[in-house]
Each structure stands twice: as C-alpha cells, then as structure tokens.
Design a protein around this nucleic acid. Structure first.
Length: 478
RNA sequence: GGCCCCGUCGUCUAGUGGUUAGGACGCCAGGUUUUCAUCCUGGUAACGGGAGUUCGAUUCUCCCCGGGGCUACCA
C-alpha cells in the first residue's frame, strides 16, 4: 500500500483561525497516524491579499500548536512558471481557451439562460492577447467527487460554467494552481474545509484535462461561532494567537479541536496526542458543522493544567508573563527558583488557564497595598471582633516553631478552637491581609510560601489599619 | 435564483430497523472545604416537521422547514 501524502494549504490572508488549525490538525493526525507525509503549502497566488506577516503568523501558530510538517513551506506563487507551463499544455490541446467575457456579462448570460453553464467564446490571435483563460467543461456527463466523509457527490457538467483558470495577465487562479500542485506534489488525500466542496469538480476537471490522477478527498464540516454563524474575527477567541494569549495549552487545544467534528467509537473525551494519532480516522469525522465552545475548552484546559509537571507549569507561566506583563515577569524571575516553584505548587490545581495563575500568586512577588483592597471585600471580611482575632492569629503565626503549611494549620486551628469561632472568621481576614484579596491559594500554604517575616508584617499592618477602618468596632477597644 | 452539503440534549458527540437514546461540557441541587476553584453525588435536557417503506422507525426513501457553502480574472 502506498503511504499517504497530505497537505495543509492555508491562504495567508489573515491569522490562522481555529477552523484552519483544526484542518491542519486533522491533516497532521492523518499523516502521523499512517506514517505519511505532511506538506505545508502557502496558497499565496492572490498578491493583493497575501502578506509575509500573515505567513509568519501561520507558521508561528502551527509551531505553537506543535504541529510539524515534513515538506515546505512551499510558496504557491513561486511555482508560477510551472503553472504557466501546465497552462500552455491545456491551451495547446484545446482543453483551455482565451475568452474576454467579464463576470458581469457571465452573470447576465446566466440570467437569460437558466439551467446551463456558461461557455465562453474562444479568441484567437491578437484579439486573444490579454484575455483570461477558461477551462473547457464538457457538456455531457458528471463529475464525481469521492469524499471520505460524505461518500460520492455528483455534479452535472452541463451546469458548470467554464471556469476562469488564469487572469488576463497570465497569473493562474486558485482552482488551477491547486490542481497542478496537488498533482506535482503527489498528494494522495486532500483534507480541507467544506467550503471547497463546490470547487472540487473544477479541480477534478483540471486534473482530468492534465491527465493526472485525482486524489481522494475529505471535506470537513465548517466551524461556527457561538451564534451558529460562520466563525469570524468577531466571535470570541477565533485565532490561534488569541487562544495562546487567553492562556490555553497547545495539548488541550489539540485535544479539543480533534473532538470538534470527530469522535472515537467509545466517545472518550480526554485523549493525549499519542492517543489521537493512534485513534484518529478521517472517515469517522462527522458531517455537521460544529460550534466552538470555549467553556468546554476551558474545562479541558484545566485538566491539562493540573496534569502538567511543575517545570512545564512554571515555564508556561513565565512565557505568558513575558509576553503580556513585563513587570510581573521581572518580579517573578527575580524571586529565584525556590519561590517560583513553591508558588506554582500552591496554585497548580486552581487555575483553568495560564492567564489565571498570576493573579492568584502575585501577592508572593509584589507588596499588596491595603488601600487597594476592594472596599466591598474588606467590609465583607472585616467584621467587629476581627481585629482581636487577627491579633491572636498573628501572635500564633509569629511564634510558630515551624513555618510550614501543616504547622501553621495546627497553630491556627488552636486559635480558632480557643476562640470558639468558625474557621472562616479567622482565616478570611488573614487571607485578605496577606494577599490583598478574598481569593487565593490555600491560606496555610500561602502563609508558608510568604515566609514568617512578610506574613507577620502584613498582618501587623492590617491590624493597624483595622483600627481606622472599623470605627464602630466596640468589641475590641484594645 | 441555481448547484451542493448538513440537521440526536443549550454545546461537542456515541448509537441502533426493536435501547430506560449513552457520555462529556454547561446548567441546577446537594456534599467536601479556610476563600475561589478543584473534587464527589444526583438532577435537567435531544432524535426539526410531514408523508412513505416496515410488524416496528431516531435509524431507510421522498417532500418541507431550518442552517451552511459555492456561484470572482479571491482562496
């Protein structure tokens, strides 16, 4: 059996969207699962809209997703000489011809001739000089697209217009370039979006005129936004870059994207990349369009976050801070390996995305100001009686013989028991005092990570502040 | 308009000519808990509609409805 050759062929007219990312992933899975070859081809024949920046962005996005390719990137535009060569063949054989009918004229013709495809008027000699080139579509028969996902799809030839395959200036068009390139590159399986299904008969016709053997096809259903409409920049985190900045992990994104349109026999949800490679099969891809659901991605991402090694966790966080918050990145780096590691350890299970990590542990690397504590939070936590409780807790913390989480828990539980109050009454004020927020990692771990000196200093400061901010606190005159 | 594709819980999906139509996310309610999250338990919720084939259709066929794509000298 021949080994498969697939290609991912994005057009660099914008950033890589999750739809494109999924197409890339499916091609990658198909290749990796069958010991095949993945070719990366940049479809940049539209010089107006293609930019080098977009090419870079696409490559960057693929690298971030950890999807590698075996050949390319190949610029389709740079293959223009080859395209012209093949074009000449068709012109010579009569399979293609020059015609200067404009799009508007074709439209009008169609209005007057419903139920037929447009056939141009072949031009010769001088008059043909700067005319576009059309492919001659037979009036008889039909063109059948063999599709791994949808079966055979039939298109009547007499309904197809003779498509323009080259512009007046001689540059070729998408449907022609694709056919030539797929043939030249020995592509065996074309896996791409549904939006190309209607283009396929045109490409098949080009292939046939060229005498080339057609590949197999698999047209993926499109991805829609939360509103059920075609996905676009307006719908949430649409580009791969946005996904990264939103704090998602590549492995989680791969897992999620794989499930968006494909499901294993047993309907498993958590699938490692190895597992995906092993189990993916293109003919199990569904036929209906799917909606990108960020909530599920978040959940999945949280699962991956909790499974990360501490080393990777820290690296993800550091990378994120460097890209988005240089000040925080500097503070984090300056703290030293021990502190960084401990911070990661105590938040590990709490964040669903990389973005959520820093706000939870920033208090370990910066000095929170009591004045910055949200007024509502302060009032909710700091009640009459709080001051004396915090003072007692402070003393216990200051004199704890060991400063690790379990020792701190022990001494603080003693205070709680002795005072006969709920744990929350003591612990929440401490949390706010040392972290500046009512949301943080476990309080004992947080105290231990902070260290005795800083913990006590922050508590002392809060106690002082409590006098000012709780004027009505009669229960604690001292 | 023409051509083509698609239609199972809100979302992603599994599934079969006879099932209590299963799972996951979400949501709701409990539980654990020092906050938030996690975690655990339970619950909610679907075969778009109508004919036909059949003893029996979610499953097969047709029609309708709904959604989408293409219909460029874009990709």
């Amino acid at each position: 059996m021949e080994s498969i050759r697939v290609r991912f062929a994005p057009s660099p007219t914008g950033a890589l969207h999750i739809g494109g990312a999924r197409t890339a992933l499916y091609n990658w899975l198909a290749a990796r699962g069958a010991d095949g070859t993945l070719v990366l081809r940049i479809e940049d024949t539209d010089r107006e809209r293609s930019t080098p920046e977009n090419v870079l962005q696409i490559l960057d996005a693929l690298r971030w997703l950890e999807l590698d390719w075996d050949e390319g990137p190949i610029s389709q535009y740079e293959r223009a000489p080859r395209h012209r060569e093949r074009l000449e063949e068709l012109l010579a054989s009569g399979a293609a011809y020059r015609d200067r009918t404009t799009g508007a004229e074709v439209q009008e013709w169609r209005r007057e001739n419903p139920g037929r495809g447009y056939r141009g008027v072949p031009l010769e000699g001088d008059r043909a000089e700067d005319a576009a080139i059309r492919l001659r579509v037979p009036d008889e028969g039909e063109t059948v697209v063999p599709d791994a996902i949808r079966g055979e799809i039939r298109f009547r030839n007499d309904l197809q217009d003779d498509p323009v395959i080259a512009r007046a200036d001689g540059s070729v068009l998408y449907n022609f370039a694709v056919a030539v390139d797929d043939a030249d590159m020995g592509i065996t399986d074309v896996i791409r979006g549904d939006d190309h299904l209607s283009n396929t008969p045109r490409q098949l016709l080009v292939l046939e005129a060229l005498g080339e053997r057609p590949p197999r096809y698999a047209h993926l259903p499109l991805l829609h936004g939360p509103d059920g409409k075609k996905l676009s920049k307006r719908h949430g985190a649409a580009s791969v870059q946005e996904l990264r900045e939103a704090g998602f992990l590549p492995a989680a994104v791969r897992n999620y994207l794989a499930l968006l349109g494909w499901g294993a026999e047993d309907d498993e949800t958590i699938l490692s990349t190895d597992e995906l490679v092993r189990r993916f099969s293109i003919d199990r891809v569904g036929r209906a369009a799917a909606i990108f659901d960020e909530k599920k991605l978040r959940w999945l991402n949280g699962r991956y976050m909790r499974d990360e090694t501490l080393e990777r966790y820290e690296a993800e966080l550091a990378g994120h801070l460097e890209r988005n918050d240089p000040e925080a990145a500097a503070a984090f780096a300056a703290a030293g390996p021990e502190a960084r590691r401990e911070a990661c350890e105590i938040v590990r299970d709490k964040a669903q995305t990389v973005t959520e990590i820093w706000p939870l542990i920033a208090f370990l690397f910066t000095e929170p100001r009591i004045e910055d504590v949200d007024e509502k939070v302060w009032r909710k936590v700091m009640k009459p009686g709080t001051r004396s409780l915090v003072r007692k807790a402070d003393e216990a913390i200051a004199s704890a013989d060991r400063f690790d989480a379990s020792s701190l828990e022990r001494v603080l539980r003693e205070v709680i028991d002795a005072e006969g109050v709920s744990a929350t009454k003591v612990l929440q004020p401490i949390r706010v005092a040392i972290t500046g927020s009512n949301v943080s990692p476990g309080i004992f771990e947080s105290l231990a990570a902070l260290g005795r000196e800083r913990a006590v200093a922050r508590l002392d400061r809060a106690i002082g502040h409590l006098g000012d901010r709780l004027p009505g606190d009669d229960s604690d005159p001292g």
